[in-house]
Design a binder for these strands. Sequence first.
DNA 1: CTACCGGCGACCT
DNA 2: TAGGTCGCCGGTA
Length: 99
Amino acid sequence: MSLEKKIYKKLLEVPKGQITTYGELAKAVGLKNGQRAVGRIMNKNPYPVIIPCHRVVMSNGKVGGYAYGEHIKTKMLHDEGIKIENGKILDWEKTIHRF
DNA sequence: CTACCGGCGACCT
DNA sequence: TAGGTCGCCGGTA
């Protein structure tokens, strides 16, 4: 199975209302520093509907980018009950999902 | 808080 | 087949 497939599959483990980080996701599939690779892969996301790539944020607390616009991403996250302010996740420990 | 560069793999010449 | 490029990053200075 290709790495991207594993990533998408892992991402599906993140429940609604929770998020994960590019780094955590990368490690979850066996990569130490593949955050950027993950971002590149998410950007080309071949399954935009079944893959909730908006639930992936940056480890430094910022929301990060999004293929359809950061604003949309932020909106969707907020819509799932995640509190965000100025592009920053507020209740981090409470919102982050650990694999 | 801003700036910089290292590291990784899919995609594109 | 073999590089070069690029991105929704991350950690450090």
